[in-house]
Write a protein that binds this DNA or RNA. Structure first.
Lengths: 257, 257
DNA sequence: CTATGTGAACCCATTCACAGCA
DNA sequence: TGCTGTGAATGGGTTCACATAG
């Protein structure tokens, strides 16, 4: 038993699972559910790795951090693995979450079936706009942000989702923390300041596109330098052409910082 | 000039920027825009690091991969840095993207102002459901997926966003690649198979919550083991209680794998 | 004989600490 | 003098390759 170096362990349960591993466990879980649906009772590390989009060595190393739940020469029992990963992720309980900000994105998140199906229950929706309060979205009434404290306490909420504009996000985060929330998922495009003990994860939609933009550019450059010395245009791959020399930053027109 | 080890470099432009650095450049860009709006002309690595939520050593190392654009003893000129980072990310051109799947989430993405404000133009919306085709969302008509090839070619689209249900995502990805798209942002909770040369980034909403769940559980466990030997309940922190012993996986009720 | 579990090697990223320049 | 830019040190994560168990 035990991993590489002697990571911290609690009483009986496995602990000190590396962060990179934690981030992949939900992917394995998804793949396992799909395999179970397809009627598989057991699965090899190779099969599961393919289904999860990683290599098998990484998968085995990841699983080894949870314990030894495989059978040498055979593979893993699907149901058992689902059980163990769910347990490791804390999904044996159904977490209550509150969502703040029911604009464009908040609406979609409130109606996202994936939350319910993967261990989460939206306890309440909030907004600061009194126009929106009272509106019913996905079976939930939108409440005013001032009710946050009460709901978080009553429903034992520990996770908050922020889908407000960027300029309101910090204020909302402060209120969530004040109310007792200790984990925040932030969809607003800004950095949040929170006290120790509070976890924040961010999802930035445009940021992901910007990363893709980098790689697109790289591909276009490669294609360009393959033929002409510095292929000024011509093989600009699939990108919107117009390679503007130095357009000065007058970009960023609308909305969020 | 040049980084630590001699990473690959092209003609004159900086290359071989580490992936971890690339992922942070958009964050720096956001912070710089905010600083510019606040009237700052120059900024020190320390100030910018705080605004971006990283430490200053990491920031400087990251920027060093783009070249030497700071002034020792002074700091960085905000406008110049914005320019250089934009250039490095390939944001001197405005990329055209197509969005496939105008359900709950697709709707929200189509209306997301952050795309337009950060260098991207939604060229078209697509759906397979003929009921939806023709609908107008955020000023764009929803087109049928069969028109994908034409639009991608005509508008020189190289980036596609998938916001379909999981069971349709692979099919859509295949079509996007077939049409000539070489970068995909996938919101569907599944692993996509794509040929070499195509980049995929994924955003999984529930996955992020599951990661937070892990850390919540850890905090709850810590709080529990602080007092009683194995505090069976009582100090279950803020989480929805009910620590179920071995609930057998009957979870996952609705929707996507 | 097969596929897991894991030490060891390797590689990438972060952090430190200071040389070098305005 | 102050802050950038960067070698060197450290640490985490990935991959390799094989001992081990069924």
């Amino acid at each position: 038993m035990s991993g590489d170096r002697p990571r911290i362990r609690a009483a009986g349960r496995a602990r000190g699972v590396p962060e990179a591993t934690v981030a992949r466990l939900p992917v394995y879980l998804r793949a396992l559910h799909a395999l179970a649906d397809a009627g598989h009772n057991t699965v090899s590390s190779e099969e599961l790795a393919v289904a999860a989009g990683v290599n098998s060595a990484k998968l085995r190393k990841d699983l080894s951090h949870l314990g030894s739940y495989g059978t040498r020469g055979v593979g893993y029992e699907v149901a058992l693995l689902v059980d163990q990963i769910s347990r490791a992720l804390g999904l044996t309980q159904r977490w209550a979450v509150v969502l703040v900000g029911v604009g464009n994105l908040g609406h979609a998140l409130a109606g996202y079936a994936g939350f319910a199906s993967r261990g989460f229950r939206i306890a309440a929706l909030f907004d600061a706009d009194t126009e929106r309060v009272g509106e019913c979205i996905a079976g939930l009434d939108v409440r005013h942000i001032d009710d946050l404290d009460r709901v978080v306490a009553e429903e034992q909420v520990s996770i908050g989702v922020i889908s407000t504009p960027a300029d309101a996000a910090q204020e909302v985060a402060d209120r969530l923390v004040e109310a007792g929330v200790t984990s925040i998922l932030n969809f607003a495009p800004c950095v949040l300041q929170v006290p120790d003990g509070v976890d924040v994860r961010k999802v930035d939609l445009a940021l992901e596109l910007q990363i893709l933009s980098f790689h697109e550019q790289r591909k276009a450059d490669d294609a360009g330098s393959a033929s002409g010395v510095n292929g000024s245009m011509k093989s600009a791959a699939a990108g919107t052409v117009t390679p503007l020399p130095t357009p000065r930053v007058d970009a960023r027109e609308v909305v969020g910082r």
